[in-house]
Each structure stands twice: as C-alpha cells, then as structure tokens.
Design a protein around this nucleic acid. Structure first.
Lengths: 197, 197
DNA sequence: ATTATTTCTTGATTTACATCAAGGTATTGA
DNA sequence: TCAATACCTTGATGTAAATCAAGAAATAAT
C-alpha cells in the first residue's frame, strides 16, 4: 500500500524500517474516483497528498470564472495547497482527481510530527520545497518570455508523459491560454510537421 | 557588520553566540556601487547574498533582448540564482545593484558547511524555500488572473516600500508589462483618484 | 551650469490572443 | 444503442497590451 510512497522518499533520503513503521502509523490511504475532490476552495487544506496512482489537478477560479490550473500531479507526485496547509487559512484552490486515484494522505499534525520523529523527512521536505521553488521560477519566466506556441512546445518537452494523459483544454488552462488558442497552435504545428517531410 | 544578517536569521531561528562566531568565519562582506553586478548570465552563481543595505535586482534577458525582472532584494532580503547555485550550471540571470549596496556573501561550500554546523540554519533555509515557493505561486496566479492595472495595484499593496525606490520601467518589467503600458495605467489611476475627491 | 543620460509620457499603429458562436467528434452512461 | 456530456475545431470579431516613434522631464556627471 505504501510502497510507492516509501520508494519516492527513498530517492532523496535514507529511510529505515523503523521510520517506515512510524510513517505507516501517521498516514492514511484514500481513493478518489475521477471528478471527486480532495479540496474545495473556501476550505482549509487538511492534507498533503502523495499520488500512488491516477492523477490530480489543483486549480483556481478567477472573477470571470475562468479556471487556471496550478499543478498536475500524476503518480509519484505530491499535491496540496501549501499556503492553506501551513497557515490554516481558507484555500483559494480546488484539488480534483482527473483520473481515479489512490492517495497517501498526511495531515498537518502528522506532517509536523513526522518531521520531528524522522529527521530525514524534514530533509526531504527541504529538498521538495527548494526544488518546487526553482521549477516554479522556470514556469514564471516561460510565461513571461514565450509565445503561446513556444510555451506549448516547451511544456511538451518538460512533461511529455503528463500532456498525453490530460485533455487539451486543461493544458491550455495550465499555460494561461484559451482552449481555442491552443487548438489553433496545434493545428499550425501539425502543418509545420507535414511540410517538413 | 553582520548584525543585520544575524537579526534576520534570528527572526525565524535561535542563534547562539557560538553559531554567530561560526558564521563570521564563513561569510564575506562585499560592497557594490550602483550598476555593479554580482552575477552575469553565463557564469555560475557562486553566492547567496544577504542585503545589508541598498537594493539589488535579478533579471533575465529574452530573445528579443527584453529584460524581465525576477526579483528585487532590498536590505533584509536574500538574492541568488538558486538553480545555478545548487547545480553549478551556468546561470541565465543577471544580478545587479540598483543602489549602492552592502552584502553578506555565503559561498556554496560555506552554505553546505553552515547547514551542517548550525542545524538551525538548515531549518532557516527550509522556511525560506517554503515561503519563497508560496510567494512565487501567488505571483504566478496574479499574472494569470489580473489585468495590467490590477497587477500594478496588487504589487503596490504587497511591496509599497520597494515600489517607491525603483524606477517605473523596472516595475513594469517585474510585472511583465512595457514601460509605456505602465505609464498609461498610472495616468488612468491618478485620474480615477482625482475624480474621487 | 550645462551637457548627457536616464526616465517618463503621449499618440498612432499593430498584433497576439481572447471572446463569441456554432458545428463536429468522441466518450460516457442509462 | 442512443442520448447526454465532454471535448475539439473553425471562423468572425473584439481588445488589451505591444511596438514604434518622438519629445519632455528629471537626474546625474563634468
């Protein structure tokens, strides 16, 4: 049940069997069917979720009720609203399963406990946050510097696997484009490709 | 010399006098005049800099040679290219003093050493990265969801102090706007204000 | 003091992308 | 298996912000 979770942690830190026992006492496994929610905006985010299988997305709905996808989380990834999780303020985000998924949930109290009880977990989170910050900075610069077409190509290069499993309008939403614009970009790209041969 | 630096750390962690001695042996104080650089793109980022006084900016230059400001760092802030600092890959960023500044520099080797020798420093960085990630996510969502005018107002609310010290074209660059657009936004806002009275 | 540089403004024009609208194609579900 | 959603495409039109251009103000430098 927790194997994938432990393997993920073990990629960056050293977990003893004793550590694993501690973890197993402080996490919960949960299943979500496609289109079920882990978090609705307005709620306090109660968990960090590790995705054992399936895929989730977190997104925000703006004034004009357009959705903006913050993150995709396929198997092997974590997802949460870290801001709400830490501050216990109401979240602006929604977290939804876009495939039927199995999750390992860590509550706020458990998260704090585990960082103390398993110092390597503290280190793991240090690395996660640092990496997430760097990745997000790249995303920000790509939204500033690239055209719609370049953003799309760039994204395909970074996450080819994820982009194959996700509907186009969600890719558009992640990139800050409309579905129509992305459709036209794709058309142009296939035309380019065929001319190339 | 290092008082501001220690005060900053002490806001989040507990530093002993012994810790301070260790720090003082592993950091370097450096001054930059206005328009001098801490980092040029293509170089490996060798330091994390704490700003004792003055202000720096980090920015990236795109294909069309437009500048995009990633970060402003006035006194009390840290600045670096974390990606390059960690991976030792060449940086895409430039870091420049926009006022004459005094910095406390921590090299990569010292950073690693200090995190081991002063566990509280490791914790400090954990908190820094986590906070930076959350702040950056807010910045990303504001670029997705807000109009030019809203972005500007939002930024003034978050960093009123910094925005008063920085030329407008740099504010524009930070927001992903042109200087002309920001100038027009500001004109419209002063008009609104005068109508209000 | 006055030249030079940087910064800001304003107008005219262009452009990338959004919006609106409507039909087509899958996929899902009783 | 047929209706209902969800998803994708295409065209026509609109628009916020970029670009181009040129001058005015402010700051800095000699």
């Amino acid at each position: 049940m927790l194997n994938d979770f432990f393997n993920k942690l073990s990629k960056n830190i050293l977990l003893t069997e004793a550590d694993k026992v501690i973890f197993s006492q402080h996490v919960v496994v949960k299943k979500l069917r496609k289109r079920q929610y882990l978090l609705h905006e307005g709620e306090i985010c109660k968990h960090v979720a590790f995705v054992n299988s399936g895929m989730l997305r977190s997104y925000l709905v703006d004034e004009k009720s357009n959705e903006h996808i913050i993150q995709f989380a396929p198997e092997g990834w974590f997802i949460s609203d870290l801001y709400s999780f830490i501050t216990e303020d109401a979240s602006n985000l929604n977290i939804e399963a876009i495939e039927s998924s199995e999750l390992v949930l860590v509550s706020r109290a458990s998260h704090i406990y585990l960082e103390k009880a398993v110092p390597e977990f503290f280190k793991f989170n240090y690395l996660q946050y640092r990496g997430a910050y760097i990745a997000l900075q790249k995303r920000l610069t790509s939204t500033f510097t690239l055209s719609a077409e370049e953003k799309y190509i760039n994204l395909l290069n970074i996450y080819p696997d994820i982009m194959q499993r996700v509907p186009q309008h969600m890719i558009a939403s992640y990139l800050g484009l409309t579905a129509e614009t992305l459709s036209r970009v794709r058309k142009k790209l296939t035309k380019k490709k065929s001319e190339h041969s």
